[in-house]
């Protein structure tokens, strides 16, 4: 059933697959960061995170279309749509945390998880009902650069922009967490919430900030992937969410460099597997990888082993 065409297509095909894997990987990494940050701080798998990303893509689609109808220049459209997506996604992230997770902070572990699943279903159907169930053609926001012409058949301009944006976002996030006040507060909260409270950190604010930053990153991911694939629909958040979660777990959930590494590993695996084995089973590879990691190395590539204490 599976016909393996290993090394068919030669070197150029290999490089093409490599870059497409890198592109996918960067997007997974951007979304995975949100999962990992939230998990690191409150120990919750934020199921609704994929939906935040979907809402980011929809917001940028709506704003970009409105602006282009009013005849704004291309650069202004890209910047404004990006900002709008980041702002609204963050607002959604903040509100979801307040409504669905904060009241459950001291509830049994299962409760916030169920609440998160409910939130995810709710948001999907909210967008479905308020907008549409059809696939929407996402406008090509990023124009082709001239200097990319010679290699355009291997690496498109969009791919390059995606990889670079992701790198910039990672770099910014690392600086934020390493050197700013709020970053320090985040690290403290993730180590020991009670202790952080005792030394005067406003834990509620830190958690809200985490959701806001994670959601903004997801929104950027949303715009990038939408302009990469070229279409959006209310259901894109579900699959992307699970894949990003796989990336986060692969790298070691709670670890920020881990999420990036996991994103790239997953992206490359998927790209090579679909390129050389079969494209019908694209999602099965990702899910299979997730199951395998959790079975053999639940702490992930860069994560710390979880020790249970009584």
């Amino acid at each position: 059933m599976l016909r393996v065409f290993l090394w068919s297509g030669g070197m150029e095909y290999f490089i093409e697959l490599f870059f497409s894997g890198l592109t996918r990987g960067s997007i997974y990494a951007l979304i995975a960061l949100g999962y990992t940050m939230v998990y690191g701080i409150i120990g919750l798998i934020n199921f609704a995170h994929g939906e935040i990303y979907m809402i980011g893509a929809f917001t940028s689609y709506i704003i970009a279309t409105v602006l282009s109808i009013y005849g704004f220049p291309v650069l202004a459209i890209v910047v404004l749509a990006g900002f709008a997506a980041a702002i609204w996604s963050s607002a959604y992230g903040f509100t979801i945390e307040k409504l669905a997770y904060r009241p459950l902070r001291h509830a049994p572990r299962l409760s916030p998880l169920i609440s998160a699943i409910g939130m995810s279903i709710f948001l999907q159907n909210y967008v479905l009902l308020a907008q549409t169930s059809d696939f929407l053609a996402f406008p090509e926001l990023i124009p082709d650069f001239d200097f990319m012409e010679p290699v355009a058949h291997i690496v498109g301009t969009t791919d390059l922009v995606i990889i670079l944006t992701t790198a910039a976002a990672m770099f910014g996030l690392t600086l934020l967490i390493k050197f700013t006040r709020i970053g320090k507060a985040m690290r403290a909260t993730s180590q020991d919430r009670t202790m952080a409270m005792l030394v005067g950190i406003n834990v509620d604010r830190v958690i809200s900030m985490t959701f806001i930053i994670g959601s903004a990153l997801a929104a950027i991911g949303g715009i990038l992937i939408a302009s990469h694939i070229g279409q959006i629909n209310f259901y894109i958040g579900f699959i992307a969410g699970i894949k990003a979660f796989t990336a986060a777990v692969l790298g070691g959930i709670g670890s920020i460099p881990g999420a990036v590494l996991g994103g790239f590993v997953l992206g490359l695996t998927e790209s090579f597997a679909t390129g050389y084995v079969s494209s019908d089973y694209e999602d099965v590879f990702a899910f299979g990888l997730l199951v395998l990691i959790l079975l053999f190395k639940p702490s992930g590539l860069l994560g710390r082993a979880d020790i249970q204490k009584v």
Partner: peptide, 30 residues
């Protein structure tokens, strides 16, 4: 294999398993 995982990981693996079964059914025409 999965029951030694903690609660939230278990949730995700079962979710992935459910999707794998469905995807296999969808693609394995024979």
């Amino acid at each position: 294999p999965v029951l030694r995982l903690r609660g939230d990981y278990l949730a995700i693996v079962t979710l992935a398993f459910g999707e794998i079964i469905r995807l296999v059914m969808e693609n394995w025409n024979a």
